[in-house]
Simulated assay, not measured.
Amino acid sequence: MKEFIMIFRSEINESFGPTPEQTQGNMQDWMDWMGGIAAQEKMAGGSRLSFEGKTLKPNNVIADGPYAEVKEIIGGTIVVKANNIDEAMKLAEGCPILSHGGNVEVRTIIPVNS
């Protein structure tokens, strides 16, 4: 099996202010979706990203914020195991970010040989 990374992207929405109940429901949706992948033994890891960050550019120029020039943010990633990219895309179906206008980018991970 190969490994694939799922990158979760969404538009920046500074006015978004969910209630605690909405936040809890959204977190439960994510846990249920990822739990379904884990139950198939296809989850290899993942992480949620904070909004804080810096970007290093050529000539050691440091910019505040990750991807400050774009309208989309990357909210997190997971790594899944699948036989091919089509199977990995099938695992992406039902991702909670899709119901909020976001998207899931799926890319093959190429192992680095040491």
Rank of each mutant, 00 (worst) to 15 (best):
V79T: 10
V79K: 02
K57P: 06
P66A: 15
N59L: 05
G53R: 02
A88P: 00
A88K: 00
C95K: 03
I97C: 00
P96A: 06
I78K: 00
V61A: 13
D86V: 09
K57W: 05
N60I: 06
G53W: 12
A44L: 08
Y67H: 11
A63L: 13
I78D: 09
G75T: 03
A44S: 11
E72V: 09
K54P: 07
K81V: 08
S50V: 13
G65T: 15
V79S: 00
M43C: 03
A92F: 02
G94Y: 05
A63T: 14
D86N: 13
N84V: 09
E87D: 11
D64V: 13
G53N: 10
E72S: 12
T77Y: 07
P96E: 06
F51K: 10
A82Q: 00
A88F: 02
N84A: 11
E93F: 02
L98H: 01
S47H: 06
K54C: 13
K54Q: 15
N83C: 07
M89E: 10
M43V: 05
G75Q: 04
K54T: 15
S47K: 01
K71R: 14
Y67D: 15
K71G: 15
L98S: 03
A88Y: 00
E69C: 03
G45L: 01
G45P: 04
K90M: 06
P66Q: 14
V61Q: 11
